[in-house]
Design a protein around this nucleic acid. Sequence first.
DNA 1: CGACCGATTGACCTGCGTCAAATATCGTGG
DNA 2: CCACGATATTTGACGCAGGTCAATCGGTCG
Lengths: 214, 214
Amino acid sequence: MNCSVRGFPPYGYIVREGQRPNFCGFLVAGFALRSKLNTEGGRQVVGIQLPGEALDFQHLYLKLADHSVQASSAASVAEISRHELQGLIEKRPNILKAVVTALLIDASIAREWLLNNGRRGARQRIAHLICEIGYRLQHHQPAGDVSKQVLPITQQQLGDATGLTSVHVNRMLKELEEGGLIGRKSGRVIMTDMARLQRVADFDPAYLHLCSSQ
Amino acid sequence: MNCSVRGFPPYGYIVREGQRPNFCGFLVAGFALRSKLNTEGGRQVVGIQLPGEALDFQHLYLKLADHSVQASSAASVAEISRHELQGLIEKRPNILKAVVTALLIDASIAREWLLNNGRRGARQRIAHLICEIGYRLQHHQPAGDVSKQVLPITQQQLGDATGLTSVHVNRMLKELEEGGLIGRKSGRVIMTDMARLQRVADFDPAYLHLCSSQ
DNA sequence: CGACCGATTGACCTGCGTCAAATATCGTGG
DNA sequence: CCACGATATTTGACGCAGGTCAATCGGTCG
């Protein structure tokens, strides 16, 4: 199998909207954001990818990328040609199942984001997203202690993901901190009290399907 | 192949959130909505399905449904057991490709909805959704004339899909009508001027991937 | 040290929500 | 065909969550 690893700087584009990607990438290290723009320049983050996750199944059988994928920190990406991956899927039921399951989970997360951004107020909305990132981080590194890590997302990015302005995100983070629900470190978030935050956020991890693939 | 057709009344549940669906459904006639609820009872519509589309690929390899699917008019649904569909996918590359492509398009639509609901104002947001429904209707019935049809969605449902209240949807529809951008018939929307509406809505159909599966 | 990007804060404004009442539409049974 | 109830639309008055604008602060990197 032909597979190489490429490095990306922070803000480097891994896939650009409108482009035709010819390989499928897996995030080996670092973090990435999926995003779209409207014509007025508004940016919406439509997904967050953590180390170990796939980046480009989205375009496996489609001609053009409908959104961009961008490194949000220094990142390295393992690449396999799209054609080769298609071959693997058709021959190996295990791989087919893994790929489709990953796609289904991504879609489930997008739907939960729709609910979150559409039907929760700013405080809950931000708290919910923080919970999601915490859960997913923990799942990827069961040994690590999320309550001591600085989350890999800026206030600007939190705003772009929740449909809020960074100014308002800042106000809400201040409140959450004052309530003892989160910690801060030079402007970034630390999940010091997952249990309480989860209650405030109306967060139920079922949609992440962490241990429920069939 | 074992396949039966079932009828559903308006508002009948085809799949319930939290349930384990054991079959995959195809909408033969009528319309369906995908939706999720938060704990305060807020409802978010996360997708709309038109005749001819698949309803349950979402749960092909996942244990539990993360959202509900509900008929929004009288509907009939052709069902095939999930197990049987899994077998077909593994044996027939054509079917695999069709199923994955449908999933990818659904996911692309969800991402566009995130952008729409997060980064556009109420007027644009509603106009955009109307454009999408019009485009998809037209694609499913190339012979029909969308500009004469009443769209299969209520103002309440438009609100649940865009993250707005039905009251505000009503105000915006009134404005759109006064501007000559849409028609109305007993409270429902008619797309009388697709071209102009599209411009107002910042609508670009690329994300529907209507003719761009690989 | 200087430049730059992100976080922080305050003052002010507006788009959309809330509440509530009136009106229209549709399906059902008499 | 009409009366009725249930459901959806429509409208107005009012309030607030979150946006906008702008200035300041802080950390990081060359």
